[in-house]
Design a protein around this nucleic acid. Structure first.
Lengths: 139, 139
DNA sequence: CAGTATCCTCGAGGATACTG
DNA sequence: CAGTATCCTCGAGGATACTG
């Protein structure tokens, strides 16, 4: 987890990732929507490309224009983003005018749950306790 | 989400919260396990108490000794911590000797899932798209 | 449009020592 | 044990202007 945080653990990086989930893909859009200085955004985007969370896709052969898109590794951050989002909406102040949700194909909203691998049902955080598992022994 | 990140969005804070989930509750334990300078830990613990994520519980009447414990708001961060943990283990390098898991009462490990509120089944991040919902209209 | 360059400030955070 | 105090450095990041 320390390593996960060393990649996405600063104020701007996760905001950039969230923007990418919202469909933002151009440099100036990131600058405008995230609201940080240009070289900060340039720096974060480069770091995220380096970390294989975003990838640059050229938009036209002879142009410098390009699109920043989430890689599979990046898309896998969605549960983190959604968990944080929901926690923020639940606890961090009065609800926003238009809360952000992620919708399934059938139009349903999505809720993050912690599913028990044994009983297959959603669990409550208070019912869980930490453990360090031994590495899976090769059979 | 920006507000959520303004509370827990720095390198140390989430590590402190994770420590708390692991059962750490004493000042010197946090210093040792998190590995940051003492005044940083003091600062983060105070901020987390201020944000109602941790609470101080006196251990003895005439002593300064106290225990830092997660509040309900703090315990609600578990999905964020677990999502980050799993993402880190999946993507951020070779697996650790003893991966950290959270266990349910029946001993089962727990997996973060995004459950569709309509079809009730786990979804894949690639099948989701963002939307800003209008605020619930009062009936 | 997609950056790079430059300047400047201030706060984060390490190291170390001290305190009731 | 649970902090506070002090000193010091360096990098984060805002503002602004420039470039192909």
């Amino acid at each position: 987890m320390a390593r996960a945080l060393s990649v996405v653990g600063d104020r701007w990086t996760l905001l950039v990732v969230r923007e990418a989930f919202l469909g933002t893909c151009r440099f100036d859009e990131f600058c405008h929507n995230v609201g940080a200085a240009r070289h900060i955004i340039a720096n974060r985007l480069a770091a995220l490309v380096e970390a294989d969370i975003l990838q640059r896709v050229p938009l036209a052969p002879e142009s410098r224009r390009q699109s920043y898109e989430l890689t599979p590794k990046g898309r896998d951050l969605l549960p983190v983003v959604i968990s944080l989002l929901q926690w923020g909406e639940k606890w961090a102040g009065p609800q926003l005018a238009s809360p952000l949700r992620f919708l399934h194909e059938d139009g349903g909203t999505v809720t993050p749950e912690l599913i028990c691998d044994t009983c297959q049902s959603p669990t409550h955080p208070a019912d869980l306790h930490p453990a360090f598992l031994p590495p899976a022994s090769p059979a």
